[in-house]
Design a protein around this nucleic acid. Structure first.
Ligand code: NAD
Ligand code: NAD
Lengths: 232, 232
DNA sequence: ATGCGCTTGTGAACGTGAGCACAAAGTCGT
DNA sequence: ACGACTTTGTGCTCACGTTCACAAGCGCAT
């Protein structure tokens, strides 16, 4: 997967950071800041200031030397680059614990996403209202996607059915998928999949946690060794 | 942040993939597979087979040339490397929609994590039972962490209080944090933070989605241009 | 034993990303 | 009008990560 495939493309690593910058900028805007320096914004976003400047430079030269960046203008430019000036309709498939939380979450609507359809296989859930939306049966999936022109699908079903749901979403025309099920989804090249996997994150933390313990124990051993040899 | 800081360290990128391999291996083990080739396992994990082999080679030489890897043995080795041979006690702070889903999720317990304590500031929630655990008041946080020897904390509170909770967790002795709140947390160097941010993932999808639309539109234009010039 | 076929483990080449350091370019006070 | 000061934008270097390609090693059939 070549990151900067096309001519004026933005590096993938930069794209992944733009939303973080956008959030920091929004907070600054709310606090009434007119301009920010790369140093300030970088601190707020938790990155190196040189990296921030380089990232922003891919979008164009929107800063003023000696001054910084106009907050509102930069919010607009980053939003535009990320495609957030329009609203993206989203379908959520699977309304168990996690799907419920997602459907009720206000943080999506405020950032350019509109949850437009909910789908679940459970007859108990179908026709119930969640967050003001009716839950549709699984059969309605393709029709909903086509009628509402949905390009982004969220999978919050049990792992065993995730691939099937994925296939159906893709064949109905969805080209971006956010997957919460702990499986690797197979999709055609033109479809983009991102996964959110909390177990993986915890396991990565466990790795580092164990390494801390191991090196601490090693420290103890060498201290004991030193003591065994005796003070000199 | 140097990835391979200490001598025999494993690259960070590799650590992030080990849990994926582990999951694929567990599935294979359930299906009764005795051995796997790097090719098969790589396909199951959605990566290049050379990358898989290099990743595994950091753990040691656990494969047999001409045959492949013994599934059970590799499961054990990867688990050990990730520190999953022991159970890690976890505290969840914030039991709203998301916290509820996390507390009820069975996928953690089965992978070396044990949710041991729930904490929320809402008096309505305190003393309720969620997934068989009592919800404790915020004041009890430090005491719980110390008494249960908790090293890993999960933050599922609203964004504005996340930093405060984080500080309290750290001062109580937590050294790994999984953060679901959309904020950048500031922590001492020795504390590891990982974030799960669904809005960011969606925004990255939106970026690519927009780019697809843009290039498609560009294709249309050039087709129109070609037609305007006329067939020759 | 020996050879054949298969799969691992890894050296080497390449591509991507991070960060330093500084010239270029602007602002602001005088 | 000018100089001092501030901050951006970027060339360059180095580190990290990915992928290729193949020799080394193992099992099995003969
Ligand atoms: N709950 C969590 O905190 C959490 C954490 C990490 C990962 N996950 C993953 O997220 C997914 C959902 O988790 P959950 O806790 O919400 O599970 P859940 O069992 O509470 O919900 C699953 C939902 O999917 C529905 N469903 C089942 N088959 C379906 C189908 N074929 N089509 C449409 N809907 C179908 C069910 O009716 C149910 O409502 C799982 O894959 C889980 O592993 C959940
Ligand atoms: N729900 C989602 O799908 C979703 C998606 C992405 C991100 N998030 C983020 O996850 C976090 C939680 O989301 P949610 O939907 O569960 O919110 P929620 O409002 O449903 O729950 C928040 C919980 O935190 C508790 N709380 C508030 N202040 C606290 C404090 N000082 N100490 C301890 N607990 C406190 C509240 O009592 C409540 O129970 C938020 O930061 C949200 O932005 C949620």
């Amino acid at each position: 997967m070549p990151a900067r495939a096309q001519g004026r493309g933005i590096p993938e690593a930069t794209v992944a950071r733009l939303p973080v910058y956008l959030r920091a900028l929004s907070t600054l805007a709310e606090d009434g800041a007119g301009t920010v320096s790369s140093e300030e914004l970088a601190t707020a976003a938790g990155v190196n200031s040189a990296k921030l400047r380089k990232d922003l430079s891919y979008l164009g030269s929107y800063g003023t030397r000696g001054v910084g960046y106009d907050v509102d203008y930069l919010v607009y430019q980053v939003s535009r680059e990320l495609g957030l000036t329009q609203d993206w309709p989203v379908v959520i498939v699977g309304l168990g614990h996690l799907g419920h939380a997602l459907a009720n979450y206000g943080g999506f609507a405020s950032r350019g996403f509109a949850i437009r359809a909910l789908v679940d296989a459970d007859p108990e859930l179908v026709d119930q209202q969640i967050a003001g939306l009716r839950v549709h049966p699984l059969e309605a999936l393709e029709d909903l996607v086509r009628r509402l022109g949905i390009a982004i699908g969220v999978i919050a079903t049990p792992a065993p059915v995730a691939q099937t749901i994925c296939d159906r979403l893709v064949s109905a025309g969805v080209s971006s998928i956010l997957n919460f099920a702990p499986v690797v989804l197979a999709v055609p090249d033109e479809v983009e999949v991102r996964k959110v996997d909390m177990s993986i994150e915890l396991q990565i933390l466990a790795f580092h946690e164990q390494r801390k313990l191991a090196t601490a124990a090693l420290g103890d051993v060498s201290r004991e060794l030193a003591e065994a040899v005796g003070p000199r």
